[in-house]
Amino acid sequence: MKSKKVIFPESHNIEVREDEIDLEDVSPEEIVIKKHYSLISPGTELACLADKENWFELPGTPGYAAVGEVVEVGDHVSDVETGQIAYFFGSHSEYEKISTDRFFLATPDSLDEKLIPFVKMTTIAMTSLRVSDIELGDYVMVTGQGLVGNLAAQLAKLQGAFVITTDLSDRRVELSRNCGADLALNPNKTDLKDEIRKFTELGGVSTLIEATGIPKVAVESLELIANEGELILLGTPRGEYRDDITELLNYCHLEQKGNITFKGAHEWRLPPFHNEYVKHSMERGSKIVFKLMEQGKLNIKDLLTHVIEPEEAEEAYDGLKEKKDEYLGVLMDWT
């Protein structure tokens, strides 16, 4: 059977190819899933496209958030049935064989399938809260309102924080405000430090979640954090940035300046599957997101801006890079 997939054959190059997949050649521990939708993760996949991710080898197929239907089940698989709709860490391809030890969850019937891949972006965002000290009534700031940043802000709001967001795109600032941010700002159009000082009445926020992945933004945001506050690195830092590291460390170290704690919040610090010895895992986080979506506590629908055919992938990646007012959540439709 023919199976389409998106390929990055080399840096800054995108192709859609067709491979043969033999649905009868399934190992006893494998299942085959026919994708319905897969979601582009903009920051990671644009970095992969530029050959700036060490773990991603070119040529390669990107993507790690998908939903689809189980169409074949190996002889030794007992807890999965054909016809089952599943959420899993799937690539941008029409069919995919996965081992049963891969991450895989049955989806609630009540949820729109188009929203299911956004669970991945939400659990990535959730990691910033898991490592933070956010408490009811705290002031939290999220820099960058892409998918992960927007969802981190929504989750911080659900945790009881007063939430400030920033982005250079006016459309994303507006969307963030519509998703519940108490104060949403474009740093190019306001005195950020003055606005935050007035809003918090504390001289700064207690937690700053950095979701852009731009090191310069993280460093320049330190002055927006109150004494004894924390900087959460949610977006993976990318790109070169040069500064006086002694001055930076002194700012974080000395009480009269900041006394600020740095924390990494990469999702893979958590185990994929839940067990009795851990409180947090990707599996538990995903199930929590399912419940929040079912209860209408997360605004996912407004984050979905485009549903595209795989053949439109190049245009979509260009849009995510160059047209941030228009492109945000982009699904590939494999149906």
Rank of each mutant, 00 (worst) to 15 (best):
E195A: 13
E315F: 00
I260A: 07
I21F: 10
K35G: 05
S169P: 01
N227L: 11
K324Y: 04
E195R: 14
P237E: 04
K193T: 12
M121Q: 13
E53H: 05
E135G: 04
D194H: 09
L304E: 05
G203Q: 06
G68S: 07
G258Q: 08
L331H: 08
I21G: 01
P117I: 13
L331A: 07
V142Q: 02
K34M: 09
L231R: 06
D138Y: 09
Q295A: 14
D243R: 02
N227P: 10
I21N: 01
T123R: 03
V142D: 01
G149W: 06
S27T: 11
D333Q: 02
L233S: 04
V6P: 08
S281E: 08
E45F: 08
R242Y: 09
I33C: 06
D101W: 10
K287W: 00
G146I: 05
H36T: 10
F273Y: 14
K291V: 05
E45W: 07
E240C: 02
T107W: 08
L49A: 03
L298C: 09
P187K: 03
P108M: 00
R17N: 09
P272M: 10
G235R: 05
E240W: 07
L248V: 15
S11L: 07
L58H: 10
M126A: 14
I164W: 03
E322V: 03
G213K: 02
K324N: 11
S99D: 13
M282E: 12
I98W: 02
E294W: 01
T200Q: 15
L249Q: 13
L234M: 12
A265K: 03
S78Y: 08
